[in-house]
Design a protein around this nucleic acid. Structure first.
Length: 625
DNA sequence: GAGCCTCGGCTCTTGTACTGGGAAGTACA
């Protein structure tokens, strides 16, 4: 059975929506929304907290902050019966397709209630019909502009959906491209520019792109220190519909306003809002649709705006509460005592005035980071520059696009001291997985390359060995023991129930030759959920064995995900951050793995790829018992 | 509904911009 968390989160969110449309208690709405968020972010399968729904003990559930007796009982009801009666009762009070109206841009619960109760609208199709026959125009509060906005929103929602989340690895290059474009268009008008929002926090999927800009001539932007590169580099991204940054069309001798420059970017499909300090647009490129918001603030407020615009919302609310408790007010322009501005230019000075250490963006989720910052106990998070080894990479021997030589040279060019060649094992037939005979030959080739590179980088002979459905590995121990390093990963049977999946992966961890458990769930973000094993049990087993769990940095995978990596760290387990590179471009995915690790609170010492060469080789040997 | 101080009743999460309609709703972190 799949994890219940996503289904339950959707149910609680729907209960919140319907309650809001029905003008129910707003605190009840907030409680439902909070339950949805908690369930969505919970690393453990909620079913594990209720082993026997027929004779439930609610203590483990109500121990989770934000889940009280009422929500716990509803969760148990779902686990026992597959539904929540109150959810059905709520839905029965409104037309079944009414909640879909909430997906329309600019339409909230009040408007949905107005359309339904006074206009008789029951669905998106119904709204379209009534807009066509002009039967809504007599309703107070629905003027011609609002009706026109409904038409535009409908035109967008029907073909591909109003809301679309994109992977971190899709959003980051586009954000950097926008920043490059604005720099070229506006040149000396920009003082600082930065992306913010969930992108800066390194979330695995992004709902919209938030760009912050302060106008003033002649100043360079601040670097993104955690990732070791400035945010303005597009990373090779170039939208199909747009010329390269700085090309003739973007060089405007009569400089446009910032709002104009933003709303006329080549990717802009629709302008949703355009004011002096805030613009929202809808971007479209090669079937990818994404909203982007721009905020324009004066340089003295840049830090306050960056703090606000980075979020999360829950973190912002907590910070503003703290300010109020200290007799201060925090908004996106600064921290104030009365009318006096105390801080605003940098995030650091705002945190300092609030009695806090600077909190890295990746930790700003209201998960206890403010308390840690108050006590000067925030972890010193891992940085991109700490990584010195790639321990999971493929070559043309299986399904890679490059030779052992090119892989090694690329890693050496990135100042790595160790690279492990880990091609697929025989069961990965479609990936040209290596038979045992071919593996022997491949190891010989790797050894030969290692001799060539001995003065620049250590090349390890390894394999990415399939963990078969029953937990057996794809090569016998007699073959594994001849390798320097073994990454064991699941690739097939990814719909197993959690118990089987846990037992399967546990068996792999217990193999004496396994060094790293690779992409443990096998999920693909926005494509397939993958396995749902008991990560806590696996992490404890891995910690006991002394092996590492992988954060696969490929932006399709990010597996372990942030919450799982946090569970692993709490169990005392080491992490490995690998790109699973199949070609040169894949090594550029490493920052996404770093962001994921930072969101988990990982320090340099938690990640084996940061070890000096000898220490790393010693650790690998230590895993073989 | 959650959570707190007390066991039933009370409070609960900030602050601002934009739009469109003539105040409030929606959206954003």
């Amino acid at each position: 059975m799949a994890r219940a968390n996503p289904a339950l989160a959707a149910i609680f969110q729907q209960m919140a929506d319907v309650t809001e449309i029905l003008s129910g208690d707003r605190f009840r709405v907030l409680a439902f929304q909070k339950a949805a968020r908690i369930l969505d972010e919970l690393a453990l399968d909620v079913a594990e907290l209720v082993p026997d729904p027929a004779h439930p003990d609610l203590k483990k559930l109500t121990a989770v902050q934000g889940i009280g007796k009422g929500t716990a009982e509803r969760i148990v009801e779902y686990l026992a019966t597959g539904k929540i009666r109150e959810h059905h009762d709520l839905l029965a009070q409104i037309p079944p397709e009414l909640p879909a109206l909430l997906d329309l841009q600019g339409v909230g619960p009040k408007t949905v209630a107005l359309l339904w109760k006074q206009g008789g609208v029951t669905s998106l199709a119904d709204l379209k019909t009534k807009l066509g026959d002009n039967s809504l125009s007599s309703i107070p509060g629905l003027g011609p502009k609002k009706l026109e906005n409904f038409r535009q929103a409908l035109a967008f929602v029907q073909p591909q959906g109003a809301q679309q989340r994109v992977r971190l690895g899709q959003a980051m290059p586009i954000a950097r491209w926008i920043i490059d474009e604005l720099r070229h268009k506006l040149s000396r008008q920009i003082h600082e520019i930065h992306y913010a929002g969930s992108l800066r926090r390194g979330k695995e999927t992004i709902g919209d792109l938030d760009i912050l800009i302060s106008p003033a001539p002649g100043s360079a932007p601040a670097p993104e220190t955690a990732l070791g590169s400035a945010p303005g580099s597009a990373g090779g991204y170039a939208p199909a519909s747009a010329p390269a940054p700085g090309s003739a069309h973007t060089t405007n001798k009569s400089a446009p306003s910032i709002a104009d420059a933003f709303t006329t970017l080549p990717l802009v499909q629709d302008v949703l809002a355009k004011g002096d300090t805030k613009c929202s647009v809808r971007l479209s490129d090669q079937g990818l649709h994404l909203q982007s918001d721009l905020r324009i603030v004066p340089p003295e407020s840049f830090g306050a705006a960056l703090l606000y615009f980075t979020g999360s919302k829950e973190h912002n609310v907590r910070l503003r509460q703290r300010a109020l408790e200290q007799g201060l007010k925090l908004n996106e322009y600064g921290l104030y005592k009365g009318d006096k501005l105390l801080a605003g230019q940098t995030e650091e000075e705002i945190f300092r005035h609030l009695g806090l250490d600077w909190i890295p963006p990746e930790l700003r989720e209201d998960h206890g980071e403010i308390s840690l910052a108050e006590r000067h106990q925030l972890p010193a998070l891992i940085n991109l520059g700490d990584i010195q080894a790639e321990l999971h990479a493929h070559t043309t021997a299986s399904d890679g696009l490059w030779s052992i030589f090119d892989l090694a040279q690329s890693c050496a060019d990135r100042r790595m001291h160790v690279v492990a060649v880990t091609d697929h094992s025989k069961s990965q037939f479609q990936a040209n997985g290596l038979s045992e005979e071919r593996l022997v030959q491949h190891v010989q080739a790797i050894r030969a390359a290692a001799a060539q590179f001995k003065n620049s980088i250590t090349i390890l002979a390894g394999a990415e060995v399939d963990i078969l459905a029953d937990g057996r590995l794809d090569y016998p121990d007699s073959v594994l023991k001849e390798l320097d390093i073994v990454v064991a990963s699941p690739h097939a049977a990814l719909t197993q129930d959690p118990k089987k999946a846990t037992a399967r992966l546990r068996k792999a961890i217990d193999n004496r030759y396994v060094t790293i458990l690779g992409h443990p769930t096998g999920r693909l973000i926005l494509r397939r959920p993958g396995l749902a094993p008991d990560i806590e049990e696996l992490a404890q087993a891995a910690a006991q064995r002394g092996i590492a769990l992988e954060i696969n940095a490929n932006s399709y995978r990010l597996d372990l995900r942030d919450t799982h990596a946090r569970v692993a760290l709490e169990a005392g387990c080491k992490l490995a951050i690998n790109t699973d590179a199949h070609g040169p471009a894949d090594l550029d995915q490493l920052p996404y793995g770093i962001l994921t690790a930072r969101r988990a609170g990982a320090r340099q010492d938690d990640v084996v790829n940061t070890l000096p060469r000898d220490a790393l080789l010693k650790w690998i040997k230590s895993t073989r018992r």
